[in-house]
């Protein structure tokens, strides 16, 4: 069937698809690791201890206030400077792979955004839910796990979906440190052939990925939150629409 394809796709189509899968893998793993780190950062941000709060504030501001590309360079080139140290720690095999460096940078970056999403969602659950649980004699820990968290998780869905989209778009910078993600494969194909149309096919793949995710997420979110009124949902802070630090 390859004869029906445009020549550049017949030759490089498989590579682009490989890159597409690398992009999905990179984003999926970063978002998952970022969620774990982000929960810790959100907990620190809401902690009564001032030094935990200060650390979380600084972490969130630093990762949200500086370019992802600069963060990636610091991790890829900057950490590589101490290869001797990593060798003795047995981490060098992990850190010299550009994919792992991108994964580390993206996880730390999205953790900062996700921490703000989690915090906003938890704060958006009405105070009366805490009071109701206490009136029923439910302890704070159980109230948080059984009453607050399930409601907060629903409220976090919409900004969380936006964050995944931002991560898909942001992940393209991995190609700059020689990760062969979708854009990386595209740049390779372009430098081999100087056929510019390969960029359009890559762009189409990115658009399909982003739009599919956005639309599916929208249906999913609307279905899960159909019992909530609009006002409640809009009370959640979406960091994508908020100043970098608050």
């Amino acid at each position: 069937m390859t004869e029906y394809l445009p020549p550049i796709l017949a030759e490089y189509g498989d590579d682009l698809l490989d890159g597409f899968l690398v992009t999905i893998q990179l984003v999926g793993m970063s978002v998952a690791f970022g969620a774990i780190i982000g929960m810790g950062v959100a907990a620190a941000r809401m902690s009564p201890r001032w030094w935990l709060k200060a650390f979380a504030w600084f972490y969130i501001g630093l990762f949200r206030g500086t370019p992802l590309l600069a963060q990636l360079f610091l991790i890829y080139y900057g950490l590589g400077q101490f290869s001797g140290l990593w060798r003795t720690l047995g981490l060098w095999n992990f850190l010299r792979d550009p994919f792992n460096c991108a994964l580390l940078a993206f996880s730390l970056n999205t953790a900062a955004y996700q921490a703000e999403i989690f915090r906003g969602a938890i704060l958006a659950v009405p105070e009366g839910q805490w009071e109701g649980a206490r009136a029923l004699g439910v302890g704070r820990r159980v109230a948080f796990m059984r009453v607050i968290l399930p409601q907060a998780a629903l409220l976090a869905l919409r900004p969380f979906g936006n964050e995944i989209v931002l991560m898909i778009k942001g992940s393209a910078v991995a190609s700059v440190v020689t990760v062969y993600d979708l854009l990386g494969e595209t740049r390779l194909a372009y430098s081999d052939t100087f056929r510019f149309d390969v960029y359009f096919y890559a762009a189409a793949l990115y658009l399909v990925l982003v739009e599919t995710l956005r639309r599916l997420w929208d249906i999913f979110e609307r279905r899960l939150t159909r019992h909530l009124d609009r006002e409640r949902k809009e009370a959640v802070v979406d960091p994508a629409g908020q100043p970098v630090m608050s």
């Binding site: 501001g61 630093l62 206030g65 500086t66 370019p67 600069a70 963060q71 360079f73 610091l74 080139y77 900057g78 950490l79 590589g80 400077q81 101490f82 100043p243 970098v244 630090m245």
Partner: peptide, 21 residues
Amino acid sequence: EPFFFFTVAIVIYFIISLVSM
């Protein structure tokens, strides 16, 4: 000196963000 210089760049970006805000 990648670690030093990229840290400096990140600090500069951070300062512009803070001033902008």
